[in-house]
């Protein structure tokens, strides 16, 4: 009871727990815990044989946080920015620090634009995006989609209905836009 000094008793004492659970108390002493203390100054521990790493060549103007004083010595080179989404990303990095909501909101918006741009771009390739195979939805049948949900008392089932809306909305919106555009062009003729 929190109203009196003593802690509520446990169902099992340490000896009983040690007998029941393999390894119980092996790290009882904080000195045996690798995360303790949190900071240990030991520059030689990592295996690094440099004080400042050599600079990786910059093959395009690498977007970076304005909180950095320089381009980091090493960086990822996956998926360089391109198109409208790339311009939005470059703006987000150039204009706002990590402390500003605008920085993250523009990056999130760029992600959505990137999805639309990439999907449209895929239609000009031999392998257009395919929402059926890419969502893995066919695994529902082979992996007991109904039995995994019905009667399982799961908290997430209610909002899983939103997932297809999120995936499908851009396709529906794109279809509607294409239909309206087509209709307008036909009328002009």
């Amino acid at each position: 009871m929190p109203y009196t000094p003593d802690k509520p008793p446990l169902a099992e004492n340490s000896e009983q727990l040690r007998a029941r659970i393999p390894g119980w108390g092996a790290d009882l002493d904080p000195a045996d815990r690798p995360a303790y203390p949190r900071e240990r100054f030991d520059p030689g521990a990592s295996g690094a044989h440099w004080e400042l790493p050599e600079q990786q060549p910059e093959k395009w103007p690498r977007e970076r946080s304005i909180e950095h004083l320089r381009l980091t010595p090493v960086f990822g080179t996956s998926t360089p920015p391109r198109g409208l989404s790339g311009a939005m990303r470059k703006l987000a990095y150039r204009r706002w620090s990590e402390g500003r909501a605008a920085h993250w909101l523009v990056l999130l918006a760029a992600d959505r634009v990137d999805t639309v741009e990439s999907t449209l771009r895929s239609f000009a390739t031999t392998r257009p995006d395919n929402p059926v195979t890419q969502t893995g939805i066919l695994s529902e049948r082979r992996h007991h989609g109904v039995a995994s949900r019905v009667g399982q008392n799961r908290a997430d089932v209610r909002h899983q209905l939103l997932d297809p809306v999120i995936v499908g909305a851009p396709w529906v919106a794109g279809g509607v836009a294409a239909y309206r555009l087509g209709k307008r062009l036909v009328r002009r003729r």
């Binding site: 900071e39 240990r40 030991d42 990592s46 690498r62 909180e67 960086f75 990590e98």
Partner: peptide
């Protein structure tokens, strides 16, 4: 990294300092 905070390295992520 010199203090063991390997997950907080400052030399590998130009996109964010956090």
């Amino acid at each position: 990294c010199a203090r063991g905070l390997y997950s907080n390295c400052h030399n590998v992520n130009p996109n964010a300092t956090a």
